[in-house]
Nucleic acid binder design. Structure first.
Lengths: 208, 208
DNA sequence: TGTACATCAGTGAACGCGCGTTCACTGATGTAC
DNA sequence: TGTACATCAGTGAACGCGCGTTCACTGATGTAC
């Protein structure tokens, strides 16, 4: 009890901060982050509007926190999945990525909706912050897959990595609007598309 | 002059209506359609807020008009391009699609930004209206390319058409945020990705 | 252990402002005869 | 051609409402001695 005495207060503050962030996610899934108000978020988080300022200077700052503290970990776990998947079986690797994506949609649809929407949304600062996170993901997919190998990159691997990321995000968007019983079909289609791209990029380098 | 006497009034109304739609496009490129207000649009269109009601019942109705009267023709011309392109040369077909896309970005960036953003945006009704338009585009890409031919569809062509549309829209989004002198590089990458997908879907059907 | 002081998350009142919407009115244009 | 009436896009005043932000205050918790 005497240990880390000051942490009680700090933990409570952290808890409220997270409540506000989750409230913002939920509400921006409903009508977009750009149209979200400080009073609305505070109300949903069950604090007075004036208390909002104890946690964030304004809504853009909350947006930044969402990207850094919630989006980054989710994309990180997706990247980890991609790296760990068996590189020799492209079909398996594609399935692993798609399943990771569908898992994220099931586990935290609000967060995924936020990512998908704000990636191309109206807040330029948010769009840029998210773009940086996606580029990090593409870079991981592009990198030599066995870190110990000589790692000569194929000429088309950049385009292929971009394509994989694009297809994954399109899949995110489609899955969100799809009733659960139709997701199996989406899964098959996505795996087929990803396999096409991954296999093609593994094949003999094409002459321009 | 005596001919079509009543059309003067009607044409003027149509002109103002279009001014409002363009104003809404421009403003939603700045901070999103969902956060757009009737007064703001009216101000940008240089009419009194109360005059807005002479043209649209509310903002959602204006959104619907944007989709039907501006988005639909643009996607239609893209689809036309895809159909007309030489089907036997996949690289050429991919280039044609990408160039059509970049042309649209250059000609009407505001409209493209609207499409890209609201496709995954917060207004559910707008999202659904746009999704219907995209599905129409995918259907065209999926259809047998020579209308006179026997037209047996390949098993993976559905997935390929979806992938092409996904890659095109990702390209839209990237091109919008790219300075013009970097678009050539994006063009090459996109063509490479699209060619991968198109060529793979033309190849021998793969066993599952 | 007890006491005096510092910190700081949360608060309610108050502010000026822009919003969507209603209403009755204006005046230019179109129509009937 | 002239006259009387209908239509209807555009308007300004007014409304109630929710917004972001400021301010001074409260009271629980943490810290120093």
């Amino acid at each position: 009890m005497v240990l880390r005495a000051s942490s009680q207060k700090r933990e409570e503050k952290e808890r409220v901060r997270l409540v506000l962030m989750r409230a913002a996610l939920r509400l921006s899934a409903e009508h977009g982050f750009a149209s979200l108000g400080l009073r609305e978020v505070s109300r949903a988080g069950a604090i007075a509007p004036t208390s909002f300022y104890r946690h964030f200077a304004d809504m853009p700052e909350l947006g930044t926190a969402l990207v850094e503290e919630l989006v980054r970990p989710l994309l990180g776990s997706l990247a980890k999945r991609a790296i760990e998947a068996d590189e020799s079986a492209t079909g398996q690797r594609a399935a692993s990525l798609v399943d990771g994506m569908l898992l994220a949609v099931g586990a935290d649809a609000e967060l995924v909706r936020f990512i998908v929407a704000e990636r191309v949304g109206a807040f330029a600062s948010l769009r840029r912050a998210l773009a940086a996170e996606f580029d990090a993901l593409a870079t991981v997919l592009e990198a030599p897959q066995k870190s110990g190998a000589r790692g000569g990159q194929q000429p088309s691997s950049g385009a292929a990595a971009d394509a994989v990321v694009a297809l994954l995000f399109d899949g995110f968007a489609r899955a969100l609007d799809l009733p659960i019983h139709l997701r199996a079909e989406l899964r098959e289609r996505l795996i087929a598309s990803l396999t096409l791209v991954l296999e093609a990029s593994r094949g003999a380098p094409r002459q321009p």
